[in-house]
């Protein structure tokens, strides 16, 4: 399972753990975990519009923080639900650079089963860690 929700962490909020063999997979899984808090049937999100995301940060965890915020931004500004298609992450001069392509469509109440609106990514116990088998992130979303 690329991500799972944590029952015992957070009460009003929703916590998840995501894993990936590498950083692009981790970022992609964490973005689906975030979108899945808002929409139950992710498969119903059709790739009708594309958005390109470019970010950089000195810290890998803050890069993920910024990346997840992008999805939340599009959800409010354009009511656009996005799924990440391709992620590239490079490290140069002790800084991380991300390029991603995300595709999706505006929320359609008839087709998209809503769950909870995500207000923000919190930094409470927020972590991105390298494990033997890949990468793991822990995220608490404010609902």
């Amino acid at each position: 399972m690329p991500y799972h929700y944590l029952e015992e962490i957070g009460t009003a909020d929703i916590a998840f753990e995501a894993t990936g063999r590498d950083l692009p997979e981790l970022f992609s899984d964490a973005s689906d975990a975030t979108m899945n808090v808002m929409i139950d049937n992710l498969d119903a999100i059709e790739p009708r519009e594309t958005r390109h995301i470019e970010l950089s940060n000195n810290e890998i965890d803050m890069l993920l923080f910024d990346f997840l915020q992008e999805l939340i931004y599009f959800k409010d500004a354009e009511r656009l639900l996005l799924r990440v298609r391709a992620v590239q992450i490079e490290q140069r001069n002790e800084k991380y650079f991300l390029k991603a392509e995300a595709a999706g469509e505006p929320l359609d109440e008839a087709r998209h089963q809503q769950r909870a609106d995500v207000k923000a990514v919190t930094l409470h116990d927020f972590s991105v860690e390298k494990k033997n088998s890949g990468w793991k992130a822990r995220v608490l979303l404010d609902i």
Partner: peptide, 11 residues
């Protein structure tokens, strides 16, 4: 005030 996580409640 909540006593149960959302994830648990929905189950």
């Amino acid at each position: 005030g909540r006593t149960m996580s959302r994830t648990k409640a929905r189950k």
